[in-house]
Design a binder for these strands. Structure first.
Lengths: 114, 114
DNA sequence: TGCTTATATAAGTACATTATTATATAATGA
DNA sequence: TCATTATATAATAATGTACTTATATAAGCA
């Protein structure tokens, strides 16, 4: 695949956004499967507004998209983003987060948001 | 080349550092050739302490190294860094900065730091 | 409709980051 | 040795970021 060149502004914004551990982990998680807000709140053990604010930044930058399913809003990678190729390369360097999804499953909280 | 996996901390620190336009541009410049502080001050049209502080952060993270040549200190990419493969991929997405080095040359300021 | 659950937004606060100004260090050369 | 040039460091001010708490919105259900 040939290299897609974006502007310095777009690239530095993307790197700044993923330079935060929470957001980097969110992108790695979403690379595996879409997640709703309450799943992420559980995984990061932080407040719901904190997660919502991280998601908003990622969405504003076009890196993720949302999809409401009844009362839940699921977030997923926006693979149409001009930054997606770069993001994909980045997160391939990040250690696996499968254990986080596994813990969620064990607790019976995966995909369901009871 | 196989993928080198670093810790979440190391990766997010690297992305945070390169999430700044000045530092991202510095890394792209150094990927072409080593530069001394006064060349970078000229290129970025900012204060010398501002550049020194950016260089220090990059050096503290192990991304660049310094090499004194008489009164000048030249900075270059530390290709021994555990992050080098990641950094190399990142900066391959960044638009060329050749024009910046060319301008410097035209002004007679390249490599010499009169 | 009113209650509950999921999520977003707003306001405020604490902390981090980046630049500036002033000063220190280090090398060179008269 | 003294003056000059290159660079680093310290202190400070301005700005940005990420959290918290409180509140608003929106969907589902009794």
């Amino acid at each position: 695949m040939t290299q897609r060149i974006n502007s310095m502004e777009d690239i530095s914004l993307t790197l700044k956004l993923l330079g935060d551990k929470t957001r980097l982990t969110i992108m790695k998680l979403l690379d595996k499967q879409e997640c709703c807000v309450c799943e992420l709140v559980e995984i990061f053990k932080t407040s719901q507004p904190a997660i919502s604010q991280h998601l908003r930044k990622l969405k504003d930058a076009g890196l993720i998209k949302e999809n409401r399913k009844s009362q839940w809003i699921f977030y997923s990678i926006n693979t149409d983003s001009r930054q997606w190729q770069l993001v994909q390369e980045l997160i391939s360097h990040v250690p696996s987060v499968d254990h986080l999804l596994e813990e969620l499953k064990v607790k019976g909280l995966r995909m369901t948001c009871n």
